[in-house]
Write a protein that binds this DNA or RNA. Sequence first.
DNA 1: TAGACTTATATGCGGTGCGCGTATATGTGT
DNA 2: ACACATATACGCGCACCGCATATAAGTCTA
Lengths: 258, 258
Amino acid sequence: MTRARGGERADRREDHDDETTFLAAYDLTAYPRPALTVDVAILTVLEDAIHALLVQRPSQPAKGQWALPGGFVGLDESLPDAVERVLARETGLTGVYTAQLATFGAVDRDPRGRVVTVAHYALVPAGTLVDAVSARPATLLARVDASPGGGPGGFSVRGPEGELALAFDHREILTEALARVRWRLWHAPVAFALLPEEFTLLELLRVYEAVLGRSLDKNSFRRRIRASGLVAPLGRRREGLRARPAELYRCAGPDADP
Amino acid sequence: MTRARGGERADRREDHDDETTFLAAYDLTAYPRPALTVDVAILTVLEDAIHALLVQRPSQPAKGQWALPGGFVGLDESLPDAVERVLARETGLTGVYTAQLATFGAVDRDPRGRVVTVAHYALVPAGTLVDAVSARPATLLARVDASPGGGPGGFSVRGPEGELALAFDHREILTEALARVRWRLWHAPVAFALLPEEFTLLELLRVYEAVLGRSLDKNSFRRRIRASGLVAPLGRRREGLRARPAELYRCAGPDADP
DNA sequence: TAGACTTATATGCGGTGCGCGTATATGTGT
DNA sequence: ACACATATACGCGCACCGCATATAAGTCTA
């Protein structure tokens, strides 16, 4: 230890030269390595149910099957950049809330060979997502019905034609995304990403119920949300509905925590 | 839609042939792609403080610097397999609790070029880790002192010689690992992975305090833990200490949740 | 236009869990 | 025998949540 510290400065200079020459000669691509993709589970709450945006694969492999939007990660783009690019390319969406979910690396998860995917989820207001889907062919919003008692992953993915089988391991990714969003709902202000800027407390409640898959008490919910300080009343009301107009709120909390 | 459904069976056969020929001709490796590694933040609680196992890099790049154990992901191994291999190779540890943390893909995070790493964390009882470190040169247990008020990432990593600068973005990974373990402490039975099979409630309390970075009330803690049903008394006691012997417990809960 | 209906909002009550203080039990050390 | 240290049990009060109830303020309909 003492000897090593005595030569510290000289060693450091020597190491720097070593590293420079090492890096000049180093070829990362000399070794076999997996391919890397990002996949995004784009979720929303529509008609009191979770929906996921799916795209019909336009080319091999799994051509014609429904899948999560995804794509290969470029050499010069970060993971968030890759997600942003994929979202824009396959759905036209920009500026949406996204977060990393988990990385899936089963050896046989892609028939093309070894492909590891960094799965993400995105939360989008229903209106935005409906517009995006209707503007694109070969995309749909699949209703994801999760029965909380139905065990892990015990949910159905339904399109207009009925139950859908997802390509690759995308059903597994969707399962994880659902669990993650449920988990974060109470601990991070993610629900607001699923609503337009202005919303009523009942609309917020519906989002919570849809995500959690169970009904919540309206009074307790009001108290909790208002006490949390995450919403601020706007002083205006949503009128023209069947009953007393409800106060409009907006998200007010500083975004938070891991 | 109707047309597509009418030809479904024939299409499927055709698609299968297409996919087979497609896959035969497909070369995943034809496109540039990042290299992929796994890195593991191996954590324990020693002397009422969190410690992380670090290895001194034996070769370029960042030669001589302290880093988290890690290695490239092989073409034929899953991510858990890669983690297991790396742990065994660099620390000799086997059969420890590991979980995926997050994937770090900043373009410039590795001087060799584009290297994306799937970061994991491992939780190991202090005794096991002390043994592993003392059996290997160029490894150490660095004390990680986190002041909860010190802002995000506001912690120190200290070896016997003082503060350490970690290689690559490993300090960032350590930050995330710490936050994740804190987050999970109350929601999943992770604390037991940091203790030997048999432990007293005070020892469990010390683990919680070390991970959370703050003191907890002993009485409330007892009630919460016992009411949680995650521990079962063994009927034996830890004797020979300075005071009344404490009941020994073991982890009893079914492992749980994402 | 009056009343039914629907939804919004406020308030009160009781159980539960947790922070905190206190009392008692049971070992070690002098 | 006594002090001392820790383990364990219990009680009190507060905060929060589920639940019920009351009132407000609109729309809808006869």
